[in-house]
């Protein structure tokens, strides 16, 4: 036996305290020749509690029994072998059965793999779809915003009255609110729900009575959006029937177009009257006709 053991840090963490099952395994050790007491003793000796306070900086234990290292290596080696045996061949299933996962565990694992694979395939598709929709719908608001900004900068250049300027600013804010509202709705639409699925889940969840309530919330939001201006509400009722979302190609957004349209028409009307007040030709709004 060599006097010097393999370099081994003596921080207390690196030594697990002796456990009950150590006793079971130790007699089987082939050539280590150590007994439990020796092993424990070497552990105790190696622990910093017993160490000479003078050798604080020394991280290597010169006196520890080499057998402890051998024991530990042997133990981890055996554990690995047992695991390998169980995993190999039909061991995978056996190991899971033994671990009590059984059918559910295997299925869950497959499910997780499936989710990842399915997601990977459709994520880009969904992104492209959403991108197109978002861009097509929001560009209209952008155009309105840009037009109002142009008018605003025109007013600043020509030192128009501050009343008109603040009016344009208000309209710009209104466009922003509309935009945010539409965007929120766009994001929350689930893509192409199958009727059967919907009916199933509605039945499962017993949500039938909730749906009208949800609609009400939407209306409430609409009105909250509108309440900055009393005229909003009048327009809501009027234009819901009159305006269809012809500029939106996607039929899924059609019904949302209805809820977005009222305040947008109002903003357009206000913008038109503003253009008149500025003494600018109404042609300035020509490109917004498609809204």
């Amino acid at each position: 036996m060599r006097k010097r053991t393999r370099s081994r840090p003596v921080s207390p963490d690196s030594h697990s305290p002796p456990r009950p099952w150590d006793r079971m395994e130790l007699p089987a050790l082939p050539a280590a020749g150590g007994c439990v007491v020796a092993s424990v003793m070497s552990w105790v000796r190696a622990s910093p509690l017993v160490r000479d306070p003078g050798e604080d900086g020394d991280v290597f234990d010169e006196e520890a029994d080499e057998s402890l290292v051998v024991q530990r290596e042997w133990r981890s080696h055996m554990q690995r072998r047992v695991k390998v045996k169980l995993r190999g061949g039909c061991g995978g299933a056996l190991l899971r059965w033994v671990r009590g996962e059984g059918r559910g565990g295997v299925k869950k694992e497959g499910y997780r793999d499936g989710i990842d694979a399915g997601k990977a395939v459709t994520l880009q598709q969904g992104f492209n779809q959403g991108y197109k929709e978002g861009a097509e719908v929001i560009i209209n608001y952008g155009q309105l915003r840009g037009t109002l900004s142009a008018l605003l900068s025109w007013c600043h250049l020509h030192d128009n009255s501050s009343a008109l300027i603040s009016k344009i600013n208000n309209l710009l804010d209104a466009v922003g609110q509309c935009e945010e509202y539409v965007l929120k709705h766009l994001k929350s639409i689930t893509p192409q729900p199958h009727v059967v699925d919907l009916l199933d889940s509605l039945q499962d969840m017993d949500l039938c009575h909730v749906v009208p309530a949800e609609k009400k919330t939407d209306e409430a939001t609409d009105e909250r959006l509108c309440e900055n201006n009393a005229e909003f509400n009048k327009n809501c009722g009027r234009s819901v029937n009159g305006v269809d979302g012809s500029s939106l190609e996607c039929c899924r957004t059609q019904e949302h177009a209805h809820s977005e349209q009222p305040s947008l028409t109002w903003i357009l009307e206000q913008t038109a009257s503003l253009v008149e007040q500025l003494g600018v030709s109404i042609d300035v709004l020509q490109h917004l006709k498609q809204l």
Binding site: T122, G126, F127, G130, G134, E136, L183, L186, K187, I189
Partner: peptide, 13 residues
């Protein structure tokens, strides 16, 4: 995947 992708896509679009 479609739902998640759409959400991100809508924002960027």
């Amino acid at each position: 995947g479609i739902i998640e992708g759409r959400q991100h896509g809508t924002l960027h679009g």
